[in-house]
């Protein structure tokens, strides 16, 4: 055989159209905001609704990010994810009641400290429960979606009943800490302080997740594992440990989202997480299974659309997100930013 000739690469650079195609999901957010501006007409109402939509979207993203990673990496359909939202909310609100001196003081540092401790406790509890949940509930049903659906729905019911046993069957009402109540006025629009905080927290979680996934070796392993878990194993990484870590982290994020949502709604019930699951699944599906970026964009679209439509035509607000999902799946059947599976 002759010596190897010079090899001329045949790599084709992406055309402008292709590059724009990749960025399109990101462009949908400003496009929807602009569309909302013209549809609503009144700038102050539009601004209030936009901030409200972004806040709602960020909180849904926090809850959905864990689920999409778990599905992408572990191929697990976890309907029990909703229970971690409820569990996080109940734990967090319990801590806020225990720290009522801090939570009701008219001091921003004390209020923030109380909320941070509540979030920490919620994430800790949901993380620990998730560890047991993975070992007892999920591990026996790897590879079987039907069994996963059945057993995780069962586990969701059991965990909700456990919440009833521990915290009682009644819904619990709560007030936000004083410095997180009320609104600030900007450009004539009233913007709720808590919604601004939710936007900041959601953005921080998104940036942190992106940094971990893009800049660290563990992030690299997770991203590769989402695509081809077998090959990651063959490259020397024990993916089972990564699976457990991602499941715990994803569930802890659900716990964090539960606390944020509880303070947003100012009422908690054992079924609150279950009720959120429809929106969360819509976000995960339209984002593309396994894609954190897709879930982020999907959550913001869902939050914004729901708020705009509820203002313009309340009767169709409930179906607006189903319409959004249908439209996106007609455009991109695998979701906006699908992760290509290796096998």
């Amino acid at each position: 055989m002759s010596a190897a000739p010079d090899h001329k690469p045949t790599f084709a650079r992406l055309s402008l159209g292709d590059q724009l195609g990749r960025a399109t999901p990101y462009l949908l957010i400003p496009a929807l905001i602009v569309l909302g501006y013209f549809a609503i007409g009144a700038p102050t109402s539009w601004l209030t609704l936009t901030v409200s939509g972004l806040a709602m979207g960020m909180m849904i993203f926090i809850m959905a990010s864990g689920l999409t990673l778990v599905f992408g990496l572990m191929d697990i359909i976890n309907f029990g994810h909703g229970a971690f939202i409820s569990l996080g909310a109940f734990m967090g609100i319990s801590v806020l009641f225990w720290l009522s001196g801090w939570a009701t003081a008219a001091s921003l540092p004390l209020n923030i400290a109380a909320v941070l401790l509540a979030i920490l406790a919620a994430m800790l509890l949901t993380g620990v429960v998730a560890w047991g949940f993975e070992r007892v509930i999920v591990r026996p049903v790897y590879g079987s979606h039907l069994k996963q659906i059945l057993i995780t729905v069962g586990a969701l019911i059991v965990l909700e009943e456990l919440i009833h046993v521990i915290w009682g069957g009644q819904e619990i009402f709560l007030n936000r800490p004083p410095t997180l109540q009320g609104a600030v006025t900007f450009a004539g629009a009233a913007l709720e302080k808590y919604r601004i905080l939710a936007v900041v927290v959601g953005l921080a979680i998104f940036v942190a997740l992106r940094l971990v996934l893009r800049r660290t070796k563990i992030g690299l392993i997770v991203r590769a594992g989402v695509q081809n878990d077998e090959m990651v194993e063959a490259l020397g990484y024990r993916l089972k440990l990564v699976f457990i870590g991602v499941f715990i982290a994803g569930s802890a994020l659900a716990g964090l989202g539960g606390v944020m949502w509880a303070l947003y709604e100012q009422v908690i019930t054992a079924g609150m997480g279950e009720n959120m699951m429809i929106l969360i699944f819509i976000v995960v599906i339209i984002g593309g299974l396994g894609s954190v970026e897709g879930a982020f964009i999907g959550a913001l679209l869902v939050g914004l659309l729901q708020n705009y439509v509820a203002f313009l035509e309340p009767k169709i607000a409930l179906v607006s997100n189903i319409g959004l999902m249908t439209a996106i799946l007609l455009w991109r059947p695998q979701g906006m930013m699908p992760v290509v599976k290796g096998h």
Partner: peptide, 23 residues
């Protein structure tokens, strides 16, 4: 496990190449 065999000193190139196309 496969991971332990790799760390023991075996390099593997699968038939389907196993490239992570998103990376």
């Amino acid at each position: 496990s496969a991971a332990e065999r790799c760390r023991a000193g075996i390099g593997y190139v699968p038939e389907d190449m196993g490239i992570f196309t998103d990376l």
